[in-house]
Design a protein around this nucleic acid. Structure first.
Length: 748
DNA sequence: TGTATGTTAGTTTTT
DNA sequence: CTAACATACA
């Protein structure tokens, strides 16, 4: 026991050993948040205050949940598999599976991921003959999810105009369709579970009696519904231990509600907030930069990171003429870092939006530096995997129209629009699923399924193709039903293999020119099933399908080789690196243009910046480019306001290497007025102070100052003499056309 | 039914 | 500029 808690600092110790009461722990970046959370769980169990059974710990990502379980297992000699540790969605799924009848769901209900959900909505809008100009499917999806995350059913949504009326109508149809098919989307998992506990007093009391301690990770990311769910589950008995950091709330755009922290204080009568402010990750300068920056936000709960380590190196800032130069600067620095002995996997290249990775990748590729981009297509989202899963889903739950439509003619088996329309009409007439309509049309199971009942299972040798004798819709129905019968009796991996072979998927991709990768992925699906059977408590097909929906899998097969890490700032949250390059620090990019109009948008961007800064342990580079190719156009941006929010004393402005291509413009020096130009070996001073004022004082890309609007950059020029006008992009105001004769512009 | 061309949008993302 | 999506055509 003492070994568990002996190495904690006083605040961590207090948090870990808190008696049975609800608490809010404000855990700064790198302050040992996960450690506190898992150590508390171990402490509670080891000290006999609670059994593993009485704990519920919830996180947002599968990765975090897995990490938590691993750490608990390393501290305690217990089997963690039965513990209620998981994501909100995972735990809700678990609850709904256990009480599917009470929740009004079929036993094998399937989970729709976002893409599936969108497909259902598109289908529905088509059936309703909705104008997809006025009602884009994505917006309908957004509306429905938003409503659900507010805890509202279609019948409960307030209708304030015709548009909302239409949206609610779609929502209602969508609800009915999902119920008919026995499918639930992500938000539905939460909402169903919430409603189940609300309505069913018996169950509510059961779970309230069971969970003495509820622990919540990344509490600042909870949405309204998740908060209500927690509150409902906790009742007035459980101790809720919420850990979070309001300064790292970067998901408001998807419903995260920082207000939950303040509500939590009130609703759970939190008398004292424990703050973890000692940072074990970064050197002082980095923390000072982050602290100063975030102080510009209002309504913070308040927190200041500190370290017992020294100041460390200054933060390096680089002002590049173009995005291309910025990339090559990064490449050069990475090379010298590597020469100093920093491994590539400890270096991160961060950017605000994915589009920015392109120019970086290009430069890295040319320099033959190994890199890995995060955030691409994930395993269970791949087309071929989606197809395979659709077969499995249809076998598990034939009412799943979405799955059926995906594969009824894939691989092609001669089912065209006409047969499909007939089927859909029939389904509409019956008010049932497509599968049901199929049976109606082609007779019931017994009539068209060979070898059903108690006879020996169909023998499926590789030379015997089931889909050969019967074509079209009937053939498809026979195929699915016979595969279902066979797979029922097989262990999961073999069932998957059987399906892959007999569905024709393998043959299809084998015939395809570019199908090798897809075949490999299909093979990997069998491996995934094998792995799942070994790890999971429940190794049924339904459980595997839930797993596939809830856990889309690692982004890419980690090649394992040492490589640079490229990712958005969002995906870097929770990670740390020896060295971090943050590129594209420009107004319009970071903070992003689209955030400027949103309420609290810039503050969220600032929190994002805060997250970015605090990823670095030892060395931090900030860079921006004066011109950048975006959407096929060259954009001229001014440096990000965030750069100006970091004290000069922490920064070291690097100078570009002198190259033959350097243009004689006013780049290559530090921020105006800073006067802090520090030379370092290998880096030369700015090219020249001499400006050719006669030729073109005002040129595109020129930085200027305006008395009223402040710093800007010229993005366009036209006219001559008294008519001469320039278009200037200012940070906050946007772009303006100014007559040179009147606007008092000065070069900056 | 698949290809070919045109159109349009283009933050962040986990479940 | 590109990639994804949609509509048009063979």
């Amino acid at each position: 026991m003492s070994s568990l808690i002996s190495e904690l600092n006083p605040e961590q110790f207090e948090a870990v050993t808190l008696p049975h009461q609800s608490a809010l722990v404000l855990a700064g970046a790198g302050s040992g948040k996960t450690r506190v959370l898992t150590t508390r769980i171990a402490y509670l169990i080891q000290s006999g205050q609670v059994s593993p059974h009485g704990i519920l710990a919830v996180t947002f990502t599968n990765k975090a949940a897995k990490e938590m379980l691993i750490r608990i297992a390393s501290m305690l000699p217990i089997d963690t598999r039965g513990m209620w540790v998981g994501t909100f969605h995972g735990l809700c799924n678990r609850m709904l599976r256990a009480h599917h009848q009470d929740a009004g769901l079929p036993q094998a209900f399937q989970i729709l991921d976002s893409a599936d959900q969108l497909a259902v909505i598109k289908r529905l809008l088509k059936v309703l003959d909705a104008d997809d100009e006025k009602f884009p499917p994505r917006q309908v999806q957004w509306f429905i999810n938003n409503a659900k995350e507010e805890g509202l059913r279609a019948s409960q949504v307030e209708i304030y105009d015709d548009f909302a009326r239409k949206m609610v109508e779609f929502y209602l149809f969508y609800e009915q369709q999902c119920n008919k098919e026995g499918v639930v989307d992500f938000a539905e998992l939460l909402l169903r579970s919430y409603e189940l506990l609300t309505r069913n007093e018996h169950l509510r009391e059961h779970y309230r009696g069971r969970f003495d301690h509820i622990l919540v990770d990344e509490f600042q990311d909870t949405n309204r519904l998740q908060y209500k769910w927690l509150k409902l589950l906790a009742g007035n008995r459980a101790a809720v231990f919420a850990v979070g950091d309001d300064d790292q709330s970067i998901y408001a755009f998807r419903g995260a509600n920082t207000g939950n922290m303040k509500d939590f204080e009130r609703d759970f009568h939190i008398s004292k907030i424990i703050k973890l402010e000692q940072n074990y990750r970064s050197h002082g300068n980095i923390l000072d930069a982050a602290n100063t920056l975030i102080r510009n936000n209002s309504g913070r709960l308040g927190k200041n990171l500190w370290t017992s380590e020294g100041h460390g190196e200054p933060i390096r800032v680089y002002n590049a003429p173009t995005d291309f130069d910025e990339a090559s600067f990064i490449v050069d620095e990475v090379k010298s870092l590597r020469a100093e002995g920093v491994v590539l996997s400890q270096i991160a290249l961060l950017y605000r939006s994915n589009a920015q990775s392109r120019v970086l990748e290009h430069a890295l590729f040319n320099a033959s530096l190994a890199y890995r981009v995060y955030g691409g297509m994930r395993f269970f989202e791949r087309q071929e995997i989606k197809h395979a899963l659709a077969y499995l889903r249809l076998m598990a739950n034939p009412e799943d129209d979405n799955a059926l439509l995906r594969i009824i003619n894939f691989p092609v088996r001669g089912i065209g629009m006409r047969s499909l329309e007939q089927l859909q009409d029939e389904a509409k007439r019956q008010g049932g699923s497509l599968w049901a309509a199929m049976q109606q049309k082609y007779g019931n199971d017994a009539a068209f399924i060979p070898n059903s009942g108690d006879q020996a299972p169909i023998r499926l040798e590789s030379n015997q193709r089931l889909d050969k004798p019967r074509k079209g819709v009937e053939g498809f129905a026979v195929l699915i039903e016979s595969m279902r019968q066979v797979c029922e009796k097989l262990p999961l991996p073999e069932a998957v293999e059987h399906m892959l072979e007999h569905s024709g998927l393998v043959a299809h991709y084998r015939a395809e020119r570019e199908g090798a990768d897809r075949l490999e992925n299909l093979n990997e699906l069998i491996n995934a099933a094998t792995g799942f059977v070994h790890e999971a408590e429940d190794d049924s097909l339904t459980a595997f399908l839930s797993h596939a929906s809830l856990e889309a899998g690692e982004h890419q097969a980690g090649s394992g080789q040492d490589a640079l890490q490229l990712m958005t700032v969002h995906s870097a949250k929770g990670l740390e690196f020896h060295s971090v390059f943050l590129s594209g620090l420009e107004e319009g990019l970071f903070p992003h243009d689209n955030s400027r109009n949103e309420a609290g948008g810039v503050e969220e961007e600032r929190r994002l910046m805060y997250v970015a800064l605090t990823r670095a342990r030892r060395r931090l580079y900030l860079s921006f480019a004066q011109s950048r190719m975006l959407h096929g156009q060259t954009r001229y941006n001014i440096p990000s306001r965030f750069l100006h929010e970091i004290p000069d004393s922490l920064l070291k402005w690097l100078q570009p290497m002198q190259k033959a291509t350097i243009r004689n413009e006013d780049w290559g020096r530090g921020r105006q007025g800073s006067g802090r130009v520090i030379q370092e070996p290998g880096v030369q001073a700015r090219t020249s102070n001499i400006r050719d004022s006669t030729a073109s004082q005002w040129r595109i890309g020129q930085n200027v100052m305006h008395a009223k609007f402040g710093a800007g950059v010229i993005v366009n020029c036209e006219g001559h003499g008294a008519d001469a006008r320039v278009e200037v992009r200012f940070g906050r105001i946007g772009t303006k056309w100014l007559l040179l004769e009147y606007a008092k512009l000065t070069p900056a």
